[in-house]
Design a protein around this nucleic acid. Structure first.
Length: 164
DNA sequence: GCCAACGTTGGC
DNA sequence: GCCAACGTTGGC
């Protein structure tokens, strides 16, 4: 069985698509498309399952960090944007009969009362090995362990401090 | 804007 | 298959 994590972290630049954008979509449900890295694609194709829970991470933001939670509501299927010439994710080398890129559907769960900044994740005991804090980790689809998930849920409840 | 850390491409 | 050049991600 390829099945691994039940928890994930998906990155998105909030200038492009933020957790507030997801929340305001009718039904709170959206296609998670535009993933154009083979390792990340493989995870979407092979490992991400309906019902998996996902941390919504804001990247290239001030500050970057975890903004809330969404749920996977459709497992991997061909990313429609790869065949759309008007999409910035269009891939002319992808073949309809053998699609190269994969999307999943996600549903808004909740927004945290505060954003948990990357700096805080890095300094939190128990998150030392979390994929998103690793140096040079650039994949937009990252696994999260059950233990890490639990710690992040605790952090989400904490009051913001001056450091945030 | 800088730059580290990749990933991809293409010449050979 | 090697590897240099180039492109991208993303924190700072």
């Amino acid at each position: 069985m390829m099945s691994t994590s039940r928890y994930w972290l998906f990155k998105s630049e909030p200038d492009v698509f933020s957790i507030d954008d997801l929340k305001s979509v009718p039904g709170g449900r959206e296609v998670w498309d535009g993933v154009r890295n083979y390792q990340a694609r493989n995870r979407l194709r092979d490992d991400v399952q309906v019902g998996d829970e996902v941390l919504f991470y804001h990247s290239s933001a001030q500050p970057s960090g975890i903004a809330g939670i969404m749920t996977v509501v459709a497992a991997g299927y061909p990313d429609p944007t790869q065949f759309d010439p008007n999409s910035k994710y269009h891939d002319p080398k992808s073949d309809l009969d053998n699609p190269r890129w994969i999307a999943v559907d996600v549903s808004f769960e909740r927004k945290f009362p505060r954003l948990i900044p990357l700096t805080e994740l890095k300094s939190t005991p128990g998150l030392e090995d979390m994929a998103v804090v690793q140096r040079g980790q650039r994949l937009s689809i990252l696994p999260v362990t059950a233990a890490e998930w639990k710690i992040v849920m605790q952090l989400a409840k904490k009051k913001p401090t001056a450091a945030n």
